[in-house]
Structures are given as structure tokens and as C-alpha cells.
Simulated scan of single mutants.
Amino acid sequence: MDSLTGCMVICDFGCAHSSSDNSSDSNEEVGTRYYKAPEHLFGSKIYSSSTDTWSLGAIYAQLLIGYPVFAGENDIEQIGRVVSRLGKPSKKVEQDEMHDYPDTNKLMFFSDSYSDDDYEDEYSSESDDEEMEALRASRIPLKQVIDDENLSEIDKQLILGILTWSIKDRLTIPEVL
């Protein structure tokens, strides 16, 4: 980050397409897991600017607090980390946006019968105390994490506006600027 201009440049051309390729459908894997937007964790192949905005928000939050906000070891655990930090998506987001994601109904993260204790119980016999403490720490809601870090109100609002379930409600780059 350039402290004089306030500009941050993040470059990763792994999924870049030529400017003549107008297709928004892609069969490629999009993004590094810690920074992957939830719609892609649920199998969406539609790549949009909101995908990049989510990644930017996750990286920005990590730079401010000093550790990854969502640090799953695989895609399923990554979804669990997002749910732990953001809570479940609203019914409106599930109905209006997530119904198009191929893997939404394959997972039980949003069912009323699923609880965080189910996840911890499943892994508690295999995990040592350090791993269990890391799991518990990953359950702290995002709002509490950024409040605990004494961030500026602007930084808090940016992070909360970017890291949302809804691609429609996620801040755009012009709004971030």
C-alpha cells in the first residue's frame, strides 16, 4: 500500500482473460481459498467484479488485523469459516441469489438443525488443544473481530460493506474509493 496516495495494488493474473473474451462463465478455479468469494465456494462459475471486491476486502481485513479472516483448510471448512464470521445468509439472499449456485443445497450449513457444536464435536477427538482453540477463535463474528482490533470507523464500514453474502449488496470499487 502506498501511504502517500492510499492506493493498494493486488495482482494475480491466474484467471485473466483477454479483453476480447466477454464470457462471464468460466470453468477455471477462481481465487485463493482464503480470499475466495462465497458464491464460488458454492460452485458458481459466474465471475464478476464483486468476486474481486470480496477478495480485496478479505486481503484488506487481513492486512489490518494481522491474520486471515477466513482460513479454511478446504472449501467445506472455508464455507464454515465464512458462516462463523458472517452468520447465515438471509432468506432473501438464499432465495434471490444463492439458488443459482450449484452446491448450495448439497451442504447443511444453513439448515436450522445444524449447529456449530456439530462441527466441533466431529473434530474434537482428532484435534489437539491448539487446533481446537484456533477453531473457537475462527467463530468470533466479523463485527466483533474488527471492533476488538480498534480499527477506524471507515475501515470497519469498508470491511463490513465488502464482506457480505449478497453480491448485490457488496460495495463496488467506486463505492470503496
Rank of each mutant, 00 (worst) to 15 (best):
M1Q: 13
M1A: 15
D2Q: 06
V9T: 11
I10G: 12
I10S: 12
D12W: 00
C15H: 12
S18Y: 14
S18R: 11
D21P: 00
N22T: 08
D25R: 13
S26G: 00
N27S: 05
E28A: 12
E29I: 15
E29F: 15
V30W: 00
R33C: 03
Y34D: 11
Y35E: 10
H40G: 10
G43R: 01
S44G: 02
S48G: 08
S49Y: 03
D52H: 02
A61F: 03
I65A: 05
N74G: 10
E77G: 04
E77T: 08
G80N: 02
V82L: 04
K88F: 09
K88P: 06
K92D: 14
E94W: 09
Q95F: 13
Q95R: 13
E97Q: 07
D103N: 12
D103H: 04
F109A: 02
S111D: 10
D112Y: 07
D117H: 15
D117E: 13
D118C: 07
E120V: 15
D121H: 10
S125N: 13
S125A: 15
S127F: 00
D128A: 04
M132L: 12
R139I: 11
K143C: 14
D148I: 11
S152A: 13
E153A: 13
Q157K: 14
Q157W: 10
L163H: 03
T164I: 11
D169E: 15
D169S: 08
L171K: 05
V176Y: 06
V176N: 04
